[in-house]
């Protein structure tokens, strides 16, 4: 009671100034058998991921460091890496916006045919990549449905980097949509209404209130779409034209090297890809960590 007496009459009570939410020091174990499950996890990951990767890392060194460096710094390899990562990044960026719009429409509005549209989103996911590749190729070729629209403008899509870009957009879309959709669906309507009563326009509400809370999900979708696009093979090789230095993707180059029995060279290029992919994911995860530090949970 003494504290009450010393407090200023209008002071809101029972709030210690230095209040910090308690931090869990011990995580409660929900699942029993921690040792067993950890053992299974490590064994499984080793067999499926770690050992094959280690084998890959061990492979390229038979011609020494020089041999590896020569294989990687080959201008044709460098051009293919630039093309692969460049188009994958560009396609993921495009999907970031397009996927957001699709997810928005699918969660926010009711219209006939919505569930059909919703199912359609998964198609690039479910379709065998070769099927997708062949159909994209015939659509975007100079005499195809879409390609013929662009041909008079002097724009060639199939058999150019542009074609690769289109194919990668196609395979990447579901990742963004499916990452964002559940977060958007669960967004608290009252938070949006609060923004309205405070005078925000619908646009301001979308940009200042809803979008920031979607950022983590967008980033997740982005990294998934990007990773998938970097490794994409089946749907790309048909539409790419595969011209060295112009439209030849790195996975194809690896296949070519393997067919020439240059196993060390193929492994060297694969390691370079691995390193770049790893680096990209590291950067994206870093951004995500920064975002979560800003008080989102």
């Amino acid at each position: 009671m003494t504290t009450d007496a010393t407090r200023d009459a209008g002071a809101p009570p029972f709030v210690t100034e230095g209040y910090k939410p308690p931090k869990a020091t011990h995580k409660a174990r929900v699942l029993p058998g921690f040792r067993l499950s950890l053992g299974i996890t490590i064994t499984y990951l080793s067999l499926i991921v770690l050992i094959p990767l280690a084998a890959l890392l061990a492979r390229p060194w038979e011609h020494g460091l020089d041999g590896v460096w020569q294989a990687i710094s080959d201008p044709r390899v460098v051009a293919s890496l630039r093309l692969t990562f460049g188009t994958a990044f560009a396609a993921a960026v495009v999907n970031l916006f397009a996927g957001l719009v699709v997810a928005w429409v699918l969660t926010r509005y009711e219209f006939p045919g919505k569930s059909l549209l919703d199912a359609l989103v998964d198609l690039p996911f479910a379709l065998p990549t070769a099927v997708a590749g062949v159909s994209l190729c015939s659509m975007y070729a100079a005499n195809g449905w879409i390609g013929s629209l662009f041909a008079p403008l002097g724009i060639k899509i199939a058999y150019t980097p542009l074609g690769i870009f289109v194919a990668l957009i196609f395979v990447g879309l579901p990742f963004i949509v499916r990452s964002v959709q559940p977060v958007l669906a669960e967004f608290d309507a009252e938070v949006e209404e609060a923004a309205q009563t405070l005078g925000a326009s619908p646009m301001q509400t979308a940009i200042r209130v809803i979008l920031p809370s979607l950022l983590p999900a967008l980033l997740t979708g982005f990294s998934l779409a990007f990773a998938r696009a970097v490794g994409e093979y089946g749907s790309v090789i048909f539409i790419a034209g595969n011209m060295p230095f112009v439209s030849e993707i790195t996975p194809l180059l690896i296949v070519i090297k393997l067919e020439e029995f240059d196993y060390a060279g193929a492994a060297a290029v694969a390691v370079a890809m691995l390193a770049l992919s790893f680096l990209s994911l590291l950067v994206i995860n870093g951004i995500q960590l920064l975002l979560s530090k800003r008080g989102r949970a």
Partner: peptide
């Protein structure tokens, strides 16, 4: 008038604070 133009301050039961803002 829309909610936006009424200039009525509303405090929701769930507080409805913007989580990503200080």
């Amino acid at each position: 008038l829309s909610a936006r133009d009424r200039r009525i301050g509303m405090v929701f039961q769930s507080y409805a604070l913007f989580r990503h803002m200080t």
